[in-house]
Structures are given as C-alpha cells and as structure tokens.
C-alpha cells in the first residue's frame, strides 16, 4: 500500500512539472531513477525506444512500466493515474476560467498571438520528424552523394499518402495502418 502511494506521489510530482509534452518528463525520470531505484537509466533509454514504437507518450509509458515493475498491474495503473492527475486538474481549472472570460477582449487578443505560436511549434515538431524520416543524413555525410541524402522509399510513401488523403478522405487511422504495412513489406528501417 505504501509503495502504491509513493508511486502516485512521485509520478504526480513529475506530471506537475513536465510542461510542454512527453520529452519534458525525461529529466524528472532520471532524477526519480537516482532517488528510488525503481528503474535504471538503461530502462529509461529502452522506454524511449518503446515509446517511439507504441502509442502513448514517454512519461505515461514510463509511469506504467515503473509501476508494473515495482508493484504489478495495480502499480502500473496507479503510477499512470498519478502522472496524469496534475494535467487533468490544471486543464479543469483553465477550462473554468476560459469559459468565464470567453468574451473578454484580452482573451481574444491573446489567442491572436497564441495560434501562430502553436502552429510554429507544430511545424517545428514536423521538421524534426521529417529530418529523421525523409532524409538520411548519416549516409550523406559519409558518401556526399545527393542520392544518399533522400530516403526515397519514404518520399514515395509520403507523397502517396498525401495524395490519398486528399482524394479518398479515408480516416487517418487507415493511412497509419497502411504506412505500417508498407514499412514492414518494404523494410523501411534499413
């Protein structure tokens, strides 16, 4: 019981201070690893890899994993809820004030600035994914051949998906499944 409470407490703290999404949790996870010994630094590195290959954010996944390792399935559940709780509470408070001040001129003006900033950050996230997915910088740096710079298979699939989404209007989940299948059939990881 004490371990469960401690799990909730530790991950609540990590959740409270990791502002701006998944990777912001990392420094707190390293600290927690040193303090509690619930998981090692290698576990964290493994979990980054797992999080890149499963749905869900690194913080959430690490909480589930550490909770499971220390006290089984219930532990996994408690730690994850602990991590998510601050975010849920804060959003409830923000939602309350947002409704109250919806019609305020200042809120309207603030969003004039917030929206371009939000799009800029989404673009930046896009650029970092494109860099590792559509280009092969290590190969280019060794061979200096422009043909090595582009991951051709990825470009072909990307263009097909882009056109497919425009024309077919299928649900994005369908395209994620198609992309996974194409990745397996054409060995995208190499």
């Amino acid at each position: 019981m004490m371990t469960l409470l401690r799990l909730v407490y530790e991950f609540f703290k990590a959740g409270l201070f990791s502002i701006g999404g998944g990777l912001a949790t990392l420094p707190f996870l390293y600290e927690m690893s040193d303090h509690t010994g619930w998981f090692t630094h290698t576990d964290i590195a493994d979990m980054i890899a797992v999080s890149e290959s499963t749905p869900g954010a690194i913080g959430i996944n690490m909480a589930t994993y550490a909770g499971y390792k220390t006290s089984g399935i219930l532990g996994g559940f408690c730690a994850t809820v602990g991590l998510a709780m601050p975010s849920i509470i804060i959003i409830l408070i923000v939602a309350h004030f947002l409704n109250k001040f919806r019609d305020s001129r200042y809120v309207a003006r603030a969003f004039y600035g917030l929206r371009p900033a939000s799009i800029a950050m989404i673009s930046a996230a896009g650029i970092s994914v494109v860099k590792i997915t559509m280009f092969n910088l290590p190969a280019f740096e060794t061979s200096h051949l422009i043909t090595d710079l582009f991951s051709w298979k990825a470009w072909i699939l990307g263009i097909l998906i882009f056109i497919g989404e425009k024309k077919l209007k299928w649900h994005p989940i369908v395209f994620i499944a198609i992309a996974a299948a194409a990745g397996i059939v054409f060995h995208f990881a190499q």
Partner: peptide, 11 residues
C-alpha cells in the same frame, strides 16, 4: 520497419 513506415505517415 512498421514504425519507420508510421513515421512517414506522421510527417
């Protein structure tokens, strides 16, 4: 392989 494919879709 599957997730290298999914990353293309994410882009």
């Amino acid at each position: 392989d599957a997730f290298a494919g999914i990353r293309v879709c994410v882009c």
